[in-house]
Design a protein around this nucleic acid. Structure first.
Lengths: 208, 208
DNA sequence: GTTTGTGAATGAGTTCACAGCA
DNA sequence: TGCTGTGAACTCATTCACAAAC
């Protein structure tokens, strides 16, 4: 497969949004969608939609729009979502437990295949369908499961170590919920979500 | 208080990061910090740090740097974090429960003061210190608690309605975890975090 | 008439570079 | 010498505008 072109990260985020739009009830039964339609549903301009798609080829027909199923297929392929990608979760605290149970992931094609923790008290406990495993098993289990994505829901002090363990296990994509800067191993892509910081940013726009 | 200037949203995010850096163990005991130090800890260039701060005044001294305590005070004031801001949470499902228990919020000065749900089965149950209340009480409770921020952890279908209820209750800042586009009432700031989309974006950078 | 794809123009944000102060 | 604050230069993303296709 040809490597994906370098495009703005904001554009990647929008592509994921377009894919979601194409999977909504609203479009069921439709054969074609226009860039204007997608844009309206995604909250961006039609120009932006066309520009984003144009990085990857010509998917539409002038005067008609985009073939719904075909565009969905192409977006899934572009985002590497044409196969189920098992993910492993490290950290079975309150946030980790919620992520393991979160119904939003399966709906969007992600399966949390295993959960790990370092606390012996948590190892062996059930989390929905899954049993919490010790983090020492990480490397072996990643290989067994063919996991390609890691999710980190541990306290800040443990984060750097977990990133390195996930990288050593061969994972190249990590979603991190621990705040703070992480040194990212070569060839690994880490995306961080700092929940408290989101609240802090909101506060900026408050009056008084 | 003078209204905050219009600056890039990315800059607001960075300011929040600087504030976190200044609150870390690493800086304890220090009297001054340089833009280079802050930048290294936050993962941005020293220039960027100075530019971001320059929107709000001159806080540093050439040849010396920034007075640690003073800069922390100013950043907290800029981000409107100089007082505790009670938040209300709507949705007591798996994600909502985790957010209610999440220790990362109190550490950063946010207190979840009440939790609401529409499901009678959930109303009355305990979530840590809090008891889940019916969403009909939202408006009254927001006023009682003096809450200024709302957090939405409900399914997508309920999201728009909850946004409107929170807006009607007088809240002007909302952190939304439901995917999908929301129509934002005038004067309200909604910030959305789509957890599944984060995974989708990561997948783009995977090989093969 | 409608809608795509894309080069050109615009605009926003970051980096540079340096004057000025400690 | 070390570090800040800031206008100028630059880079990069978005918007515009239009030719070509349906």
């Amino acid at each position: 497969m040809s490597p994906n072109p370098v495009i703005p990260d904001t554009a990647v985020t929008r592509l994921a949004t377009y894919l979601r739009v194409l999977s909504e009830r609203q479009v069921e039964g439709r054969l074609h969608v226009s860039s204007a339609f997608i844009g309206a549903a995604a909250g961006v301009s039609p120009d932006q939609v066309r520009k984003d798609l144009s990085h990857f080829g010509e998917f539409g027909r002038p005067g008609v729009g985009y073939d719904l199923e075909q565009l969905r297929y192409h977006l899934a392929r572009i985002l590497r979502l044409d196969r189920v990608r098992p993910a492993v979760l490290v950290g079975a605290g309150s946030l980790g437990s919620a992520l393991a149970r979160y119904t939003g992931f399966p709906q969007r094609g992600f399966r949390i295949a295993a959960v790990f923790d370092i606390d012996p008290q948590r190892v062996g406990t059930k989390l929905g369908e899954l049993t919490v495993e010790h983090v020492d098993c990480l490397s072996r289990r990643v290989a067994e499961l063919g996991a390609s994505i890691g999710i980190i829901a541990v306290p800040r002090w443990a984060c750097q170590s977990v990133v390195e363990q996930l990288a050593a296990a061969g994972l190249q994509a990590i979603l991190n919920f621990a705040p703070g800067k992480v040194d990212v191993p070569e060839g690994v892509n880490v995306r961080s979500v700092d929940l408290a910081r989101e609240l802090e940013c909101l506060a900026y726009y408050l009056p008084g």
